[in-house]
Design a protein around this nucleic acid. Structure first.
Lengths: 150, 150
DNA sequence: GACATATCATTCGCATACGAACGATCTTCG
DNA sequence: CGAAGATCGTTCGTATGCGAATGATATGTC
């Protein structure tokens, strides 16, 4: 009815940018949701990053701090902090590599192994809860897409 | 050939937990990747969260700090910090709500509006780059799934 | 009006995240 | 052997992200 209004609509069409439609914004929220579920499942006993370190050590055994960081997708500064906190809780061991004075070798302690075993079911539950809103088929596509985005 | 080895395989089957197959771990990496691309596209000039605040303010206009936090999926403590940093850069304005002494009203400054306009293309490029590895069809499914995970 | 309740903003402590700079150590090449 | 370059760990500064506690202000009810 109003030519001016119509013109403005076309302008808006061009400038259309809705935050809630942006991948990055949605990714952040999905991770927030997962972190919440993770904390619930673990009884607040451990963070996702700390669990990632335990799980990777359980998977591959003793490993240099640097490599451990790469395997768990953490910056050198970040992995240092995470390992430090796990050390304080006696969940991992740290020693100098006798063959390379630069490296620190990190491994699971007995307590760390026990914590991994104890929380394994929680971890599975956290992953499952996060994806619960999706159909089986969507879950498969979603996971495939996530891997492709790395 | 080795019965013991076979038995161990079945045991491993049951204990199977591979970090790289977990949603949370993949979500974290996807976000890391997006953050990197975002920083590239923006020339390191702004963080995704800061951009989210600008974009939301451009979308809805003046808004209480609390509500702004909810719209941008940020904790009250987080939104406070983000707004503070945008204030220092004179990209947003802050004033007390005359009708409610508890609230702070946040809005775009002229500089903030200019920054939003200037970076709009960068933001679109960041979103596009993040999804570039997926087919059109996968992108659609992926975005639908992400929204469902909120 | 007075009191209980709810909402908002601030602050503190802790835990990721990353870039950059630094020193120590190893490897490689001449 | 010795210098150059690569790798590893540490540290600093900055920016999210969240739970919990606190004080200020609004709202609802009596």
């Amino acid at each position: 009815m109003d030519p001016a209004g119509h013109l403005q609509d076309e302008q808006n069409e061009q400038d259309h940018y809705v935050l809630d439609e942006q991948v990055g914004f949605l990714l952040r929220q999905a991770q927030q949701r997962h972190a919440g579920l993770f904390s619930e499942c673990f009884g607040g006993d451990m963070t996702p990053t700390q669990w990632a370190v335990l799980a990777k050590l359980a998977e591959i055994g003793e490993c240099s701090q640097n490599l451990l960081g790469r395997y768990t997708a953490m910056d050198v500064a970040t992995i240092k902090g995470v390992v430090q906190r796990l050390l304080v809780r006696h969940l991992v061991l740290r020693r100098r590599d006798p063959d390379d004075g630069r490296q620190l070798l990190i491994s699971l302690s007995n307590d760390g192994r026990a914590a991994f075993d104890r929380h394994l079911a929680d971890a599975r539950r956290a992953s499952e809860s996060t994806l619960a809103a999706l159909s089986e088929k969507d879950q498969a596509v979603f996971m495939r897409c996530l891997k492709a985005l790395r």
